[in-house]
């Protein structure tokens, strides 16, 4: 199998060129796809599962491949490879979550934007980001717009009209506690059957799950509510259990068991 589609490949070298390129393609009615790491796109094209006429490679734009650090936050370009996040921000929860995805070699190519915006339903990088209620920058119709990630993410990224996830703004914040546990069917380098990320700020507790349902799911509650139910596993999983899916890797029943195991482990850490 080979990529038989007749594709045109563009690699703009600045934001201005990127905007021009996208505008020109839209005006001509050409279907295009943003190309970041490319691993998903290459697989999909091989199997004729992606219909597109052009690839716009975003890795030529510096802002998209940089991680910039200030006193209060990290600004991460959408085309930053996961290894760069892991190596530059090793103590962050995001780095720890990303470090479980695929393996080191592939993580040289996997990008955070690709993980969040791709077609695969796991989107594991979103788990800590939603929990931290981060903001992102989106490039839409030539404008850079700052928004809450939660406004444009529900099960998957909801970017319309050729909008592009541009940067992720990660606040440097201390957590009360954070925890993550990732299970796979057998071998470690695989999609997750259950990836649980749990974190608490001063006010809120968030439990995020990837691989458990057909898309990432969350349970958020004020910290007081959490403290009142934290001794009850059943109360904690309430609202989540019914979303467990069965697929070729894992049954819903076992997913629920893995979730309870992860929660139990987390609660031991918390107390």
């Amino acid at each position: 199998m080979i990529i038989t589609a007749d594709l045109v490949y563009y690699k703009p070298e600045s934001v201005e060129e990127l905007i021009q390129c996208v505008t020109a393609l839209s005006d001509k009615g050409v279907r295009f796809t943003y190309y970041s790491g490319g691993t998903e796109i290459v697989s999909a094209l091989r199997q004729n599962k992606l219909q597109t006429d052009a690839l716009v490679d975003i890795k030529g734009v510096q802002a998209l491949t940089d991680i910039t650090e200030t006193n209060d936050e990290w600004v991460i370009g959408a085309a930053v490879p996961l290894n760069q996040i892991i190596d530059q921000m090793p103590d962050s929860l995001l780095a720890k979550v990303c470090g479980k995805i695929a393996d080191r070699t592939i993580r040289n190519v996997l990008t955070i934007g690709g993980n969040l915006c791709g077609r695969l339903p796991y989107r594991e990088a979103v788990l800590p980001l939603i929990g931290m209620d981060v903001e992102v920058v989106v490039l839409r119709e030539g404008q850079l717009i700052r928004k809450k990630l939660s406004e444009i993410f529900d099960k998957r990224m909801l970017l319309t009209n050729n909008a592009l996830l541009y940067q992720i703004i990660l606040p440097k914040r201390a957590f009360k506690w954070n925890f993550h546990r990732r299970f796979t069917e057998s071998i470690g380098v695989d999609y997750p059957t259950v990836h649980m990320v749990a974190m608490a700020t001063e006010n809120q507790v968030t439990i995020g799950l990837s691989g458990f349902a057909s898309f990432p799911v969350y349970k958020m509650m004020p910290i007081d509510e959490f403290n009142s139910i934290k001794h009850s596993l059943e109360a904690l999983v309430d609202g989540l259990i019914h979303q467990a899916k069965t697929d070729e890797r894992c049954s819903a029943e076992y997913r629920v068991h893995l979730l309870k195991t992860a929660l139990t482990e987390w609660l031991e850490v918390v107390s």
Binding site: Q47, I187, G188, E248
Partner: peptide, 15 residues
């Protein structure tokens, strides 16, 4: 359903 190496898993060095 596992007719590609994304889904047909073989042993790796780490295992």
């Amino acid at each position: 359903s596992n007719d590609s190496l994304r889904d047909y898993k073989i042993m790796r060095m780490t295992e």
